[in-house]
C-alpha cells in the first residue's frame, strides 16, 4: 500500500517535487524559467496557505508550502482551499475554475496563456500523490 501524504504538508511538497522532476522533463516544460504561487484562502483551521512552484530552464527546482505571504512569483493564483483541492483531486478542471472566477490570476495573462498547458501537466502529476485532505 502506497504512503499517503497530508495535502500541502512539507512531505507532500517534497513528494511533489520528486514526481514533477521525474515525470515532466525540461523539454516538456519548454525549458521555461518561471514561478507560480497558489494562494489558498479559507483553509481548514482558518488562515491562508501557499504552494510555490519554481522552474529553471524547464527543470523543477522548488516546490514549497507554507503559511502567510508566499515567495515572490511571476504568477499568483488565488482561490479557496476547497477549489484547489477539487482541482488536485481531478474533480474540477483548472480552466473551468479560472473561467468561472473560482480562481483569480495575478500576473501577465498574455504570458500565462503560453504556460496554461504546462500548469495542467503539473496539476496532473500532483494529482497522482496519494493525499489526505
Amino acid at each position: 500500500m502506497s504512503e499517503t501524504f497530508k495535502y500541502l504538508s512539507p512531505e507532500w511538497a517534497e513528494e511533489g517535487l520528486k514526481r514533477l522532476k521525474t515525470q515532466i522533463p525540461a523539454e516538456k516544460m519548454h525549458n521555461v524559467t518561471t514561478s507560480m504561487s497558489n494562494i489558498y484562502t479559507n483553509c481548514p483551521g482558518g488562515g491562508e496557505r501557499y504552494l510555490f512552484i519554481g522552474t529553471e530552464q524547464g527543470v523543477f527546482t522548488r516546490v514549497e508550502v507554507g503559511e502567510g505571504e508566499p515567495p515572490p512569483a511571476e504568477f499568483r493564483i488565488i482561490g479557496e482551499y476547497e477549489t484547489f483541492a477539487r482541482i488536485t483531486r481531478a474533480e474540477l478542471g483548472a480552466q473551468r475554475a479560472m473561467m468561472t472566477g473560482k480562481l483569480k490570476l495575478k500576473g501577465n495573462m498574455a504570458k500565462a496563456l503560453k504556460l496554461a498547458a504546462l500548469a495542467d501537466r503539473m496539476n496532473k502529476v500532483l494529482a497522482t500523490i496519494p493525499a489526505e485532505y
Binding site: 488565488i78 482561490g79 475554475a97 479560472m98 473561467m99 468561472t100 472566477g101 473560482k102 480562481l103 483569480k104 490570476l105 495575478k106 501577465n108 495573462m109 498574455a110 504570458k111 496563456l113
Partner: peptide
C-alpha cells in the same frame, strides 16, 4: 490580440498584458 501586439508594438512582453473572462483577468 495580445501576442500580436507584443510582436508589433515597441513594448516588451512584460508591458503587453491581456484581459479575458477569467478570475482576476
Amino acid at each position: 490580440d495580445a501576442a500580436r501586439l507584443a510582436d508589433e508594438s515597441w513594448l516588451d512582453e512584460d508591458h503587453v498584458r491581456a484581459y479575458a473572462p477569467m478570475g482576476g483577468m
